[in-house]
Design a protein around this nucleic acid. Structure first.
Lengths: 219, 219
DNA sequence: GTCTATAAATAGATAGAC
DNA sequence: GTCTATCTATTTATAGAC
């Protein structure tokens, strides 16, 4: 991660990376923000991780805050597109719910910074979330709401609050995705089962539970 | 919150608060850490919110980091005691599960900083969590595991991974408890249902879902 | 596009008076 | 116990050379 020692200082950018400094800074920043939060992130670290100088951040981005916002927006933009595809498909309502959950899970895996940054944003009331990003977030919930409505009209689901369903899906998914390190620590501390959960277990579990709720098989 | 303006500067500490400067700093710090994270928190703000001077923080606590750790430890200590009481009671396994969930919910309400600080800790792999605190966290999971075992021996529950069950309980609970502000923002942005979930809805929902899972009524 | 050097502000921590 | 004043380190951001 931190390569800013010794002769690494004079390392030349590889041919593959040439001209991609902006993308490298973006990726390095996502890592740093996820690990340390906005305030804890250090632009020197970000630049070093991207094998560049701090000044390059200000060449490509207006400020640390703008860089952060762009990463957040990118996350929700991607999630929004994914779940929209699922909702627009010709799958059954049940499979759309499964697909919605799978899309959220895959997105969290494709962007390892996503669960951690989003948990932080939740913790501080989405203080760094602008109006555009908030609209993306709303669209994700609305999309889930439309899938639920569709199932209700087909007589297969019972009415449910989409925000409550969404919390039941996203919260466990994000916590699981964000906790590989913590679960290892807990496993070393002796917590039974902390080491034996797989990604597929979690996704399948949430899919089953969510469908059971929507189909009224709970109460 | 921030009273450090004008004549507030010369405000005398009320009789009720006299000699309680340590407790006031503790409470103000919990608020600040929850809102801004460890790195983002500012010791000047903490002191001002406690109607004291920054130097008083270093009179009562060795450092900003030690203050933070003490708050985290206090949180898990309290939760550990609560769930231990539930497990040691003579309730049925079903009611113990309900009580466990209720205890977690109440603890998150009694300490508004708890859900937000814990979400942040999750996001960074529990970087500020010491061994003692980790042991408390493990004990909470173990306690849930014992309740599940008890239900299994009584032929009422099916075996389940306590960590997976715990994530299904704690993640939605913490996200809900941490998001009043965010849900208001979403409601203003037009998300249907964001404004209409109550605390009791969430707790009852999680209780029903968790019991359905443990009783094998899901798959 | 990339770097070095530096300005300018912020913030954790301490000394010492009262 | 509480305060003011200050030291010191860190860190965002910019100027300007190559």
């Amino acid at each position: 991660m931190a390569r800013a020692t010794g002769k690494a200082k004079t390392a030349k950018v590889s041919a593959r990376d040439a001209g991609r400094s902006r993308a490298r800074l973006f990726a390095a920043a996502a890592d740093e923000f996820a690990a340390r939060g906005f305030a804890g992130a250090n632009v020197d670290h970000i630049a070093a991780a991207a094998r560049l100088n701090k000044a390059m951040i200000y060449y490509h981005f207006p400020s640390k805050a703008a860089l952060y916002s762009e990463i957040i927006r990118d996350m929700f933009d991607a999630v929004g597109r994914r779940v929209h595809e699922v909702a627009a498909s010709s799958l059954s309502p049940e499979d759309k719910v499964r697909g919605f959950i799978d899309a959220m899970a895959r997105e969290g895996e494709a962007r390892p910074h996503f669960p951690r940054m989003w948990l932080r944003e939740i913790a501080e009331g989405a203080g760094h979330v602008d109006r555009a990003t908030l609209r993306y977030a709303r669209e994700v919930i609305d999309t889930l709401g439309r899938i639920i409505d569709e199932g209700c009209r087909a007589g297969r689901f019972q009415p449910a609050n989409p925000v409550l369903i969404q919390i039941g899906i996203v919260a466990p998914l994000m916590v699981f995705n964000a906790t590989p390190v913590l679960r290892r620590k807990l496993a070393r501390a002796g917590a039974s089962g902390a080491a034996t959960i797989s990604r597929d277990d979690v996704v399948a579990h949430i899919q089953r539970v969510t469908l059971a709720v929507l189909e009224g098989r709970i109460a």
